[in-house]
C-alpha cells in the first residue's frame, strides 16, 4: 500500500451558520486520479478549496504528506472553472507566469514552447485569451496548471463549458498528462461520464458528509465509452448521487 498523500480528518466547514461539510474523512494516495461527484451545493468546491489551502476548516485538519495545509502550496495546481486567464497576458506569457513567480529565470521560453506544442497550442503563443476558442482557452489554463510540474492537480468542472467533441479531446489530454506525470488528480465534475473516464476512483459526497469511494472498473479500459456496461455504470452512479441515505 502506498502512503497516504492527502488526508482530511473529521473536517467541518460552516458558512454563516450553515454547515456545509460535516465530519468529512478522506484519504488520497499519490499518483492516482479521483473524481469527486455529488449533488449541487453538497460542498465539492469547498473540499477543493480546503485541499488547495484557500480555506481553513472550522474543525478537523487537512494535511498533505502529514503536514497541515495552512496556505496554498507551490506543488499544488488548481484549474479553475472560470479559468482565470488574465486578459492582458498572451498565451505564452500566461503559461510562463507560474515559473516566473517562482523566480525561475532560465529556460522558461523552451519549457513553455514545449508544453504549448504538446497541447496543440503552438500557433497561439502570441494570442490573447479573448482571441481563442473556449476549448483553446481551457487548454491554455491546463498548460498554466501543468508547467510547474505539480504533484497535486485540483480541477473544478474542467470541461463543463465545452461541446462534446472538445470535451473528449480535453479529457484525453488530462488523462494522458496525469498518468505521465504520476501526479495526483482530484477533480470535481457534474458529468458522471467524465468521472468514469478520468477517475480511477470515484468519490461520492453525500449530504450527511460521508464520502463513498468506489473503484472505477472502466478506468484502464481503452475507449471506455464504447464498452458494454459503460453507460450502465454511469446510470448506477447517477442513482447513487441522488440517493439520500445508503448505497
Amino acid at each position: 500500500m502506498k502512503k497516504d498523500f492527502i488526508s482530511m480528518d473529521q473536517v467541518s466547514v460552516d458558512f454563516d451558520r450553515q454547515q456545509v461539510l460535516k465530519g468529512v474523512n478522506l484519504t488520497l494516495e499519490q499518483g492516482i486520479s479521483y473524481a469527486l461527484i455529488g449533488k449541487s451545493g453538497s460542498g465539492k468546491t469547498t473540499i477543493l478549496n480546503l485541499v488547495a489551502g484557500f480555506l481553513k476548516p472550522d474543525e478537523g485538519t487537512v494535511s498533505i504528506h502529514g503536514v497541515k495545509v495552512q496556505r496554498p502550496r507551490r506543488e499544488t495546481a488548481f484549474l479553475f472553472q472560470e479559468l482565470g486567464l488574465l486578459p492582458w497576458q498572451t498565451v505564452a506569457e500566461a503559461v510562463a507566469m507560474p515559473l516566473k513567480l517562482r523566480g525561475q529565470k532560465k529556460g522558461i521560453d523552451m519549457l513553455v514552447a514545449e508544453l504549448l506544442h504538446k497541447l496543440g497550442l503552438e500557433k497561439h503563443g502570441n494570442k490573447y485569451p479573448q482571441e481563442l476558442s473556449g476549448g483553446e482557452q481551457q487548454r491554455v489554463a491546463l498548460a498554466r496548471t501543468l508547467i510547474g510540474e505539480p504533484d497535486l492537480i485540483l480541477m473544478d468542472e474542467p470541461t463543463s463549458a465545452l461541446d462534446a467533441t472538445t470535451k473528449e479531446e480535453l479529457q484525453g489530454l488530462i488523462r494522458w498528462e496525469q498518468q505521465k506525470r504520476q501526479a495526483t488528480l482530484l477533480f470535481v465534475t457534474h458529468d458522471v461520464e467524465e468521472a468514469v473516464i478520468l477517475g480511477q476512483y470515484i468519490l461520492i459526497l453525500k449530504e450527511d458528509g460521508r464520502i463513498v469511494q468506489l473503484e472505477n472498473p472502466y478506468y484502464f479500459t481503452e475507449n471506455a465509452r464504447e464498452q458494454l456496461g459503460f453507460y450502465e455504470e454511469c446510470i448506477k452512479l447517477r442513482g447513487m448521487i441522488k440517493m439520500e441515505k445508503d448505497v
Binding site: 488547495a52 496556505r71 496554498p72 507551490r74 499544488t76 513567480l101
Partner: peptide, 8 residues
C-alpha cells in the same frame, strides 16, 4: 485566487 494558487 489564481495568483494565490501560484503562491505569488
Amino acid at each position: 485566487k489564481v495568483m494565490d494558487s501560484f503562491c505569488a
